[in-house]
């Protein structure tokens, strides 16, 4: 994968490998036996996203859940992999949804998903539109902008300042929704790497058994998370 100029997540990569080393080497030795480290995001071969789309997703999620400050960011938790996997699967294809016409994409948003496009198609068609808008407005495609300008551009997208086509209207909503899903879903879906997001907020994941703790009112639950496939953090 080519080196992306100005990609703010490079700092994220470094942090990710440092965090990974900490997990593998010190925090939970059991972890290393369980799972080999996955391929670095820079080496990852997307299943359905084209290089320009992947570059956008990498850059966008790095701003939606940035690496700076406390807690992991979307890059360390491998959210882009989650998004690629989801878009390549049933969700991306809207496999469960009723997609027959006639469609009224311009209907009030209160009336739900009304675009004829699937989530994958929304990404595919909205990314070039948004990149073009970034170029015209800020001089470069989104992934090449600096972090502060990226934040500005995402805010414009969220507020729909560019008046995006109605059939692409849900783009920001699903991009943000999918980013948070990737951050918090079980790691088997590609994101929430090392259960870092769960550890950060204090969610015990797939423990699912708290009978003895119900009446320990206002006492913080002591155990960290487990995942569905048996990882421990």
């Amino acid at each position: 994968m080519r080196d992306l100029p100005g990609l703010p997540s490079r700092r994220g990569f470094l942090k990710a490998s440092a965090a990974t080393a900490a997990i593998a080497g010190i925090a939970v030795p059991a972890k290393a036996e369980q799972k080999p480290e996955p391929v670095a995001l820079t080496e990852y071969k997307p299943i359905c996203l084209k290089p320009s789309e992947w570059a956008f997703v990498m850059a966008a999620v790095a701003r939606l859940i940035p690496s700076e400050g406390e807690g992991p960011g979307a890059i360390e938790t491998r959210v882009p992999v989650f998004i690629d996997m989801q878009l390549a699967g049933d969700y991306g294809r809207a496999a469960d949804w009723y997609m027959e016409g006639p469609h009224d994409a311009a209907a009030s948003p209160l009336r739900g998903w009304q675009t004829p496009l699937t989530p994958l198609e929304v990404y595919q068609q909205a990314i070039p539109v948004f990149d073009e808008w970034c170029k015209v407005t800020h001089g470069k495609i989104f992934a090449e902008l600096d972090a502060a300008t990226q934040d500005k551009a995402l805010t414009s997208l969220q507020k729909d300042e560019m008046k995006i086509r109605p059939d692409l209207r849900e783009f920001f909503t699903i991009l943000l929704g999918n980013t948070k899903e990737g951050y918090f879903a079980d790691p088997m879906y590609g994101g929430n790497h090392g259960m870092q997001a769960w550890t950060y907020i204090g969610f015990p994941g797939a423990r699912g058994s708290y009978r003895e703790w119900v009446l320990k009112h206002n006492v913080k639950y002591p155990l960290g998370p487990v995942s569905i496939s048996g990882e421990r953090a």
Partner: peptide, 16 residues
């Protein structure tokens, strides 16, 4: 904020 550094800080502060 619904995203960004402010959101990430808030989930750490307020979850639970």
């Amino acid at each position: 904020p619904s995203w960004g550094a402010g959101w990430k800080k808030a989930i750490g502060e307020w979850y639970g």
